[in-house]
């Protein structure tokens, strides 16, 4: 797939604000290419640099060094072309309190230089279940509705690339599912989506590729499936017929642990290895006189991989 967004050697150091704040290096030489039509999830703990990265791409924050190209256009020297392709849904709910929902959304379309198109605005509002509220003042909307409004504003100008900065932070389950459906629908219509999230489950559910950022460094970019295969481990749980107090010495060569109060024998193995050792284990378990009534395998989740990666000491 061709690249739609390219970030090269991007760094950002926020100037010091004496006496309270020292200079802060928010991004360190970040390189990233986003493919047209993909859903890319940028994962990272608070303060990792996710929002700074997005803000630089969108023109809200000035980079200290590096280059951003949007669909071939430099986002500084050709900012009109670059920005006209991007829709941004920021993390915070920044809205005009006193205007109507309809006017607020229409304003965004105009700001992007597009002629009025009430049919498109209506479609966006209906897709986001905002149509009933079109004449309401923004201040009367609930938090969830305001979140929908922020998305509607970004979609009002028909972007090719949509940035969703923590789109489901603090929203209920129903709205989260609605958003996931919306994102899938947008991707189907050809929109490239970059989302940042705390919720690993969200990335696991939605993303084609995952980038992990921590302390301003993009430490990993990988296809989600490949990442889970490469870094994930698998567990084989044997549900035992009778409780075991300790692992027999004859099985000490295996990476085993007891769980569920001694009724589960858990074997952890590497999916990358040529041999998993399962056959030998099962033979040795039988030879040790241990009987089991059921077998279960479990893959590690993206969350476990993520936590593992962040714990790893960086060189």
């Amino acid at each position: 797939m061709p690249t739609i967004l390219s970030v090269a050697n991007l760094s950002k150091t926020y100037a010091p604000r004496p006496p309270r704040q020292a200079a802060f290096e928010a991004l360190k030489n970040v390189n990233l290419d986003i493919q047209r039509g993909e859903i890319f999830a940028l994962l990272g703990p608070n303060g990792a640099g996710k929002t700074t990265l997005i803000s630089i791409v969108c023109g809200i924050v000035t980079a200290s060094s590096g280059k951003v190209t949007v669909d071939g256009f430099d986002n500084v020297t050709q900012y009109r072309e670059a920005r006209s392709r991007i829709g941004l849904v920021p993390q915070e709910l920044h809205t005009d309190a006193f205007e109507s929902v309809w006017k607020t959304i229409s304003f965004s379309r105009g700001l992007w230089g597009l002629p009025p198109n009430p049919a498109h605005i209506e479609k966006v509002m209906r897709d986001l279940s905002l149509w009933d509220k079109k004449d309401n003042r923004v201040m009367t909307l609930s938090g969830g509705m305001k979140r929908r409004l922020m998305i509607a504003k970004a979609l009002a100008h028909e972007p090719n690339i949509l940035f969703l900065d923590e789109p489901t932070a603090g929203v209920d389950v129903e709205l989260r599912k609605d958003m996931w459906n919306l994102v899938r629908g947008l991707r189907a219509s050809g929109v490239t989506i970059i989302l940042t999230t705390h919720y690993i489950q969200e990335a696991e559910e939605m993303a084609d590729r995952v980038g992990i950022i921590t302390k301003g460094e993009l430490i990993l970019v990988e296809q989600k499936a490949a990442l889970m295969e490469k870094l994930g481990s698998k567990q084989l749980a044997l549900h035992l017929a009778s409780k075991l107090d300790a692992i027999p010495a004859s099985l000490s060569a295996y990476k085993l642990s007891l769980a569920a109060g001694g009724t589960d024998l858990v074997y952890e193995y590497d999916t990358k290895g040529e041999r998993t050792g399962i056959t030998a284990l099962l033979q040795d378990v039988a030879a040790a006189g241990i009987r089991f009534k059921d077998v279960e395998t479990k893959e590690s989740s993206l969350e476990e991989i993520f936590v593992g990666l962040l714990r790893e000491p960086r060189p």
Binding site: C58, G59, L88, P90, H94, A97, S108, L111, G113, K153
Partner: peptide, 14 residues
């Protein structure tokens, strides 16, 4: 003050 300036700054406007 309200933060809606983000939209003006990210829009293709001079």
């Amino acid at each position: 003050f309200t933060g809606t300036i983000y939209e003006i700054l990210s829009a293709p406007v001079s």
